[in-house]
Write a protein that binds this DNA or RNA. Structure first.
Length: 140
DNA sequence: GCCAACGTTGGC
DNA sequence: GCCAACGTTGGC
């Protein structure tokens, strides 16, 4: 069971839009970066991830679940780009901001803290627990 | 809005 | 295969 983190600009695709899709979920399309794609290829049905709003809010706002494993991105004209489908599970009781992650010494090795450019990234079990705790949110 | 960091492209 | 030029992301 691995954990993940998905970044999106709220202006482009927000948590509210994700929630509105319900259990059907939505393709996480538009990724044009090999590292991010490879991370999606490694995702298994039922695994969980954080939903992060980049650029403006810079905070983790919810938990999502993989509801379809990697398949070609329907919006890409090149078949090498793949994506998974995700659905909203629950919002964070309190959003966990990037600043909070940077302040916590236990999260100093998080990719979110160290590589601001990677839009789909793995999260360790430890980081998952710590962030859920910071956000006062059920980690299960 | 600026710019640093990073990724990709393409000439050689 | 190297690396300069360029484009994009995202924090600030």
């Amino acid at each position: 069971m691995s954990y993940w983190l998905f970044k999106s600009e709220a202006e482009v695709w927000s948590w509210d839009q994700q929630v509105a899709k319900g259990d059907v979920g939505e393709e996480w399309d538009g990724v044009r970066n090999y590292q991010a794609r490879n991370n999606m290829r490694a995702m298994k049905l039922g695994e969980r991830g954080f939903f992060y709003h980049s650029r403006k809010e810079t905070e983790i706002v919810g938990i999502v679940e993989i509801c379809a494993e990697a398949h070609p991105d329907s919006k890409a004209d090149d078949p090498r780009w793949e994506c998974v489908d995700i659905k909203a599970v629950r919002p964070f009781t309190k959003p966990v901001t990037l600043a909070m992650c940077k302040e916590d010494p236990r999260l100093k090795d998080m990719i979110l803290v160290n590589n601001s450019r990677l839009s789909v990234q793995p999260v360790t079990d430890e980081e998952w627990k710590i962030i859920c705790e910071l956000g006062d949110t059920d980690p299960s």
